[in-house]
Design a protein around this nucleic acid. Structure first.
Lengths: 143, 143
DNA sequence: CTTTAATCAGATAAAATAATCCGATTATAA
DNA sequence: TTATAATCGGATTATTTTATCTGATTAAAG
């Protein structure tokens, strides 16, 4: 396996990047997200519901409804999505799976992995969605 | 989820660290590995077989049989185990799950993730098992 | 030669994750 | 007010991963 994010989380990150890259307050129905990102349509409501519960997006029922960001892109960071979907446990567990790995009882990779973990966290939290607009548009157009 | 290694791979890394930390040429039956590392006994043969096929360890059948390293610990690196169990695909795929992520069509995290991936690879390949002997002994004694 | 203790290999079961389906509800717009 | 198009939520299915079971084989030791 060797996954970093679950599929749900990957999809959620892609979807929210897509929303942030578009006109503010645009509403996206499942169908549109599915087509633009090649995500199984029926699966979308599953992870977008989690994001709705977390207050990151809002859902609008009925005709011409769909999902949209609940905040301005500048107020959202990728780590918020990861936390909502996968949680932050993996930033605190031993990479080798040893129990009670700590500075007192470190595993052979404890220190190195600790550094990488911090860098990974930074990667997800140092920028907000506003910063990713342009590159996201380009990426999506290339799919 | 947000896993880095599969459970199989974690177990395999732990098991091979254990073997490398002991007297050279010691033979370890399933039972012993299971007890020392709290790994389900029946599951051990599953991933140790993969390591046997890869030539990292040898299995000895019959009474007083078991598994032992096929090479000196100084000739084995953690990346060898990862490659044998999980493969190296994750070092080449997009962290956000976008298709065809590349320098020409990068995802928003392409560069940052690229750096981290290299550091992760280094973490697994810069040292050999000989280096981890002492810390492994301490870690296992603390379980 | 027989007993014993181990791996091996294949089948199966359980659990987690990913994907699909469908009826109920909701709200827009004709 | 009615038809339409969307989410919502629960149930179900499929797939993958993890774990267990069992019988066959092997080899050491008495």
């Amino acid at each position: 396996m060797t996954v970093f994010f679950s599929k749900k989380c990957e999809y959620a990150l892609q979807a929210i990047l897509l929303m942030a890259a578009s006109e503010h307050e645009s509403v996206f129905p499942d169908e549109e997200i599915s087509k633009k990102l090649n995500i199984p349509k029926e699966f979308i409501s599953k992870f977008l519901q989690s994001l709705t519960e977390s207050g990151l997006i809002e859902s609008k029922k009925g005709k011409s409804g769909g999902f949209r960001l609940a905040k301005h892109p500048s107020k959202i960071k990728l780590i918020n999505i990861v936390e909502a979907i996968d949680g932050l446990d993996s930033f605190n567990t031993c990479v080798l799976g040893f129990p009670k790995c700590s500075a007192e009882n470190p595993c052979p990779l404890h220190d190195k992995w600790g550094e990488l973990r911090i860098k990974a966290y930074e990667m997800l939290s140092e920028k907000n969605l506003e910063h990713f607009k342009e590159i996201t548009v380009q990426k999506i157009n290339s799919i």
